[in-house]
Write a protein that binds this DNA or RNA. Structure first.
Length: 808
DNA sequence: AGCACGCCGACT
DNA sequence: GTCGGCGTGCTC
C-alpha cells in the first residue's frame, strides 16, 4: 500500500477548492509531513504546481492509475504547523473562502512558487518536423535550454502552451521545469580560510612579496572572521587585491552565508518605569483572572492612562516563563514610537511586521519568528498569524480599530483570529481600548470576557475639555469660512502662547468635487461612480477609488463657462487657509498624499514632536497612537461627516473618532482643549463623546442595535456582486433574488436586497449587494451553491464578507 | 483557473 | 481534407 498525501493545490478558483491525493514516493517518505509545501504535477499538462500537504493517510478511495507522485518537497521544514493548519480550517469555515486563500493569509507574501519552463530541441531527430512548428524552431536549438517566457514574448501572446506540450509529446523537443520563489534567502559572499593547515604553512613561511597577505590571513584566522570582501578591506585597511590574492592561492574560499534583512536599524533603550497604582491594579486583576481560567480581558482605559506600560509588563512576565507573545497595533499607530518601546525594552527578541516592509524583509522576520530566535512580535493586522513558538499571549491595542478587519478575501477580523489562537494554546488575550467595539464591550458585560477598567489618566491629568460648535449658527451669523469663530480664535491664541495645535479632517485633497456654476456639471471619474477630488498641489482631479487623474480644466468641459466652484473641504484646503490667515505659523500636513514616500511618515511625526511646527493638519492617520506633549488644542472640523452615511455603525464610528482625536490634546503637563465643529450638535454620539462618557453612549446605542437586530445581536453575510456588464449583473441579481424566495419569512434569516451599492461602480465594475442577517452559518452552503451555479460562466464575480465593517 | 477535447464552419 | 473558433468538462 502506498502512503498518500492529500494536498491543497495553488489555485484560488472556487472549483479547485478541494484536496487532491498524491503518492508519496519512497525516497520522500521520511521527509514529508503534513503542513509541508511540496511540488506536484498537475492537470493534463502535468504543470509543476506547489501545494500544501494537509493529511498523510494509508490509502485512498481513488483507483491507482489516476494517482500521480509528489515530485519534491519545496522547503526543508514544515511551513504550517499543526496549529496553523487548524487555523487555516478555521479561517475557511468562518469567512467562507477557499483553503488556498486561507493558507495564503497565514504564510508570508512572496513565498509562493511559480513554474518556469525551459525548452531545447531534441537531437538527433529521427522524425520529420511538420512545417507549422518552423517559427518556434527558429527560436531554439539543441545546445542549451531557453526560457519559454522569452520565446512567448517574441510571439506576442500568440503562442499557446498546448503547442509546446504537443511538440514534447511528439518527441521534437525536451522540456525542463523549474520552480522559482519570488523572495529568496539573502546571502552574502564571505571569505573564510577552509584548509587551516595549508594556511598555517603559508603564514609560517610566506614568500617575501606576500608578507602583507600572510599577516592579514593570520588575523582572519585568529579573529575567526566571517566577513565580505569590503568588510575585510575596511577592517584590515588593505585593498581588495590582497584578499583576491589569498583567494587565488586557495587560502581563502568564497562561500555564501545566509543573512537576515534588518528593517529596524536604530537602537533604543526604553527603561522600565514604575507602574501607577491604577496600572498595578489592572495588571494584578488580569494575572489573577488568568490564573482562575479567564482567557480574554477587555482593558477599558481612558486615552492617556498608560496601557502600553501594562502591555510591556505582561509581555515581560510571559517572556520570563519562556512563552511567546504577539502585540498588535493598528497600522497607522505603528509609529516608530511603539516599535521603540518594545525594541527598547526587550531588544533582539522583538520582530516587527507592518505593511511597509518589503517582501524580503517580511520573509526574514517571519523566519526569525519561526525559528524561535524571536519571541515577541509587534505588528499590524497580519502579524496575528505570526508563527510564534509557544504562543501564550496576544495583545490587541485599540481593539475597536477598523484596520483590524481585512479588506481582502478572506475578510477576517484580527480579534476573532486571536481568540481562536489563544483558545488553541490556552493563552491570554488582552483587548485594549478607550472606546471598545460593541462586540467586545457586550462580551465583557455579559461575562464572556473579563473586564478591567481604568478611569483616570496617568498622574490624574484631566481629560481635555470638549466644546461643540454648531456650524449652522456660524452660517446664520454670516461666517462662511471653514473655521468657526471659536476655533479661529483658539488657534490664534494657541499660536501666541507657543503651543501646538492639531486640526483633524477625515478627507484628503483640496475639495471633494468641482462643479460648474453655469450648468451644474460635476467632474466625475470615467471608471467609477464618484466625483473627482481636486488636488491643489499638482492642480489635478483625482479619483480616490481607482487613482484616475486628469488635469484640472480651466473652463467647464460641458458649457465652457469660466465659473467653476470648489465644493467640500479636504486637508489641502485647510492647510492653505491656515497659511492664508496665519502666514507666520509653521504648518505640517499628514495624509496619504504627504506620506506616500517611505520614511515621510516618520519625518513629519518627528518634525512635529520636536516642535518644528505649530500646526499639524491631518486625516485618520493622526488620530491615534501619537504622543505629543505640547499639543493643547485639537480642532475636529467636520465631526458629522461619517454620521450621515447609511451604515448602522456610523454613530459608533463618530463617537470613536471624536474620542480618539480628542485624546491627542493635553498629554503633557498643560491642559488640553478640543473644539468639535458639527452641523448636528444634538446627536447623542457627539454629546456623549464630548463628555467622555463611553458607558452611557454604549447603553443608548446598544438598545438601537438590539431593536434593529444588528451586530452584536446577529451575524451578517454581505454578498458583493460585481461585473463590467451592468445589464447582465442586474438580470442575474433579480434572478438570484427569485431563487432565494423560499428563505423569505423564515425567523432565523432575513434577506435584504439585492440593491446597487452606495458606490455603484468602481474601476469599471458595477456593484450590487445582497445582505443576509441571522443564522448565516446554517444557510451558507445553500447560498454559496445557488450563487455559484447561477453565476458560473458569467462575467459576474461574487465575494463574501462576514460581519462587514461598512455596509455601504 | 488552465488545458484538452470535440464539434462546427471557412478555406486550400 | 484541415485549421481554428469556442462550448464543455476535468484536474489526484
Amino acid at each position: 500500500m502506498f502512503k498518500i498525501a492529500s494536498i491543497i493545490i495553488n489555485n484560488s478558483a472556487k472549483e479547485m477548492d478541494r484536496e487532491f491525493d498524491y503518492i508519496i514516493p519512497d525516497e520522500l517518505e521520511e521527509l514529508i509531513r503534513s503542513g509541508m509545501r511540496v511540488i506536484v504535477p498537475f492537470g493534463s499538462s502535468n504543470k509543476y504546481t506547489e501545494g500544501y500537504v494537509m493529511k498523510i493517510k494509508q490509502g485512498t478511495e481513488l483507483t491507482h492509475y489516476k494517482l500521480k507522485k509528489i515530485i519534491d518537497v519545496a522547503d526543508k521544514d514544515v511551513i504550517l504547523t499543526e496549529e496553523l493548519i487548524e487555523l487555516a480550517y478555521f479561517i475557511k469555515n468562518k469567512y467562507y473562502c477557499t483553503m488556498w486563500d486561507a493558507i495564503q493569509t497565514i504564510v508570508p507574501a512572496g513565498i509562493s512558487l511559480k513554474e518556469n519552463i525551459y525548452i531545447k530541441l531534441k537531437a538527433p531527430l529521427s522524425i520529420k518536423i511538420p512545417d507549422k512548428y518552423n517559427e518556434i524552431l527558429s527560436c531554439i536549438d539543441d545546445k542549451k535550454y531557453v526560457d519559454i517566457s522569452v520565446i512567448e514574448k517574441n510571439f506576442n501572446k500568440k503562442l499557446k502552451r498546448s503547442i509546446i506540450f504537443n511538440m514534447e509529446r511528439e518527441g521534437i523537443i525536451e522540456l525542463k521545469r523549474k520552480m522559482d520563489q519570488k523572495v529568496k534567502e539573502k546571502t552574502l559572499d564571505i571569505y573564510v580560510p577552509l584548509e587551516v593547515e595549508k594556511c598555517n604553512e603559508f603564514i609560517q613561511n610566506p614568500p617575501p612579496r606576500y608578507r602583507k597577505q600572510a599577516e592579514i590571513l593570520k588575523q582572519i584566522i585568529d579573529n575567526k572572521d566571517e566577513h565580505t570582501i569590503t568588510e575585510l578591506c575596511r577592517k584590515y585597511k588593505c585593498t581588495p587585491g590582497v584578499i583576491k590574492g589569498l583567494e587565488g592561492k586557495g587560502l581563502l574560499v568564497k562561500i555564501k552565508k545566509e543573512i537576515y534583512r534588518e528593517p529596524v536599524k536604530d537602537e533604543h533603550v526604553y527603561p522600565k518605569v514604575e507602574l501607577t497604582l491604577d496600572q498595578k491594579k489592572a495588571l494584578t486583576a488580569i494575572i489573577e483572572g488568568y490564573k482562575n481560567g479567564i482567557n480574554t480581558f477587555l482593558l477599558h482605559g481612558v486615552t492617556g492612562c498608560g496601557k502600553t506600560e501594562i502591555y510591556l509588563n505582561l509581555v515581560e512576565k510571559f517572556l520570563k516563563h519562556g512563552y511567546g507573545a504577539i502585540v498588535l497595533v493598528p497600522e497607522i499607530a505603528l509609529t516608530p514610537q511603539t516599535v521603540e518601546r518594545f525594541k527598547g525594552r526587550f531588544g533582539e527578541v522583538v520582530a516587527v511586521l507592518h505593511s511597509r516592509l518589503s517582501n524580503g524583509e517580511r520573509f526574514d522576520e517571519w523566519r526569525k519568528i519561526k525559528s524561535g530566535e524571536v519571541k515577541v512580535v509587534v505588528g499590524a493586522r497580519s502579524a496575528v498569524f505570526a508563527p510564534v513558538n509557544n504562543l501564550k499571549l496576544i495583545i490587541i491595542d485599540e481593539e475597536h480599530e477598523y484596520s483590524y478587519k481585512s479588506e481582502m478575501t478572506p475578510k477576517y477580523h484580527t480579534r476573532e483570529i486571536a481568540e481562536f489562537r489563544i483558545k488553541q494554546n490556552q493563552g491570554l488575550l488582552i483587548l485594549g481600548s478607550a472606546t471598545p467595539s460593541f462586540e467586545s464591550y457586550y462580551n465583557a458585560k455579559s461575562g464572556a470576557y473579563g473586564l478591567v477598567e481604568i478611569t483616570r489618566r496617568v498622574d490624574n491629568k484631566n481629560l481635555p475639555e470638549v466644546r461643540i460648535v454648531d456650524m449652522r449658527e456660524e452660517l446664520k451669523a454670516g461666517n462662511r469660512s471653514i473655521f468657526s469663530v471659536e476655533l479661529f480664535d483658539s488657534i490664534k491664541e494657541n499660536l501666541n502662547r507657543g503651543h501646538q495645535t492639531i486640526l483633524f479632517l477625515n478627507r484628503r485633497g483640496y475639495s471633494t468635487f468641482v462643479s460648474c456654476r453655469a450648468c451644474g456639471y460635476v467632474s466625475k471619474c470615467p471608471h467609477c461612480d464618484v466625483s473627482l477630488t481636486y488636488h491643489s498641489s499638482n492642480n489635478k482631479l483625482i479619483c480616490h477609488y481607482c487613482g484616475f487623474e486628469s488635469k484640472m480644466h480651466q473652463v467647464c468641459p460641458n458649457c465652457e463657462s469660466k465659473y467653476i466652484k470648489y465644493f467640500g473641504t479636504g486637508t489641502e484646503r485647510i492647510e492653505s487657509e491656515i497659511k492664508k490667515y496665519f502666514p507666520n505659523a509653521r504648518v505640517l500636513r499628514m495624509d496619504m498624499d504627504t506620506t506616500r514616500k517611505k520614511g515621510e511618515h516618520e519625518r513629519i511625526y518627528n518634525e512635529f514632536k520636536n516642535n518644528n511646527a505649530d500646526i499639524l493638519v491631518g486625516t485618520q492617520m493622526i488620530s491615534k497612537g501619537m504622543d505629543f506633549k505640547n499639543v493643547t488644542l485639537v480642532g475636529i472640523l467636520a465631526a458629522d461627516m461619517i454620521l450621515n452615511l447609511p451604515d448602522f455603525r456610523s454613530s459608533e464610528r463618530t463617537f470613536q473618532l471624536i474620542t480618539q482625536v480628542s485624546g491627542r490634546a493635553g498629554r503633557g503637563d498643560k491642559a488640553g482643549r478640543v473644539i468639535v465643529q458639527t452641523y448636528d450638535p444634538e446627536h447623542y454620539s457627539i454629546i456623549y463623546a464630548s463628555k467622555h462618557d463611553y458607558v452611557n453612549f454604549y447603553n443608548r446605542e446598544i438598545q438601537i442595535r438590539k431593536m434593529l437586530n444588528h451586530p452584536p445581536f446577529t451575524d451578517i453575510l454581505y454578498v458583493l456582486l460585481t461585473s463590467p456588464k451592468e445589464d447582465e449583473l442586474i438580470k442575474a441579481c433579480m434572478e438570484l433574488k427569485d431563487e432565494f424566495r423560499y428563505l423569505y419569512g423564515r425567523k432565523d434569516i432575513e434577506i435584504l436586497g439585492p440593491v446597487p451599492n452606495h458606490i455603484s461602480k468602481i474601476k469599471n465594475n458595477y456593484r450590487w449587494h445582497i445582505i443576509f442577517k441571522g443564522e448565516i452559518h446554517k444557510y451558507y452552503e445553500i447560498i454559496n451553491e445557488t450563487a455559484s451555479k447561477k453565476l458560473a460562466g458569467t462575467s459576474i464575480n461574487f465575494s463574501f464578507d462576514v460581519n462587514p465593517y461598512s455596509m455601504i
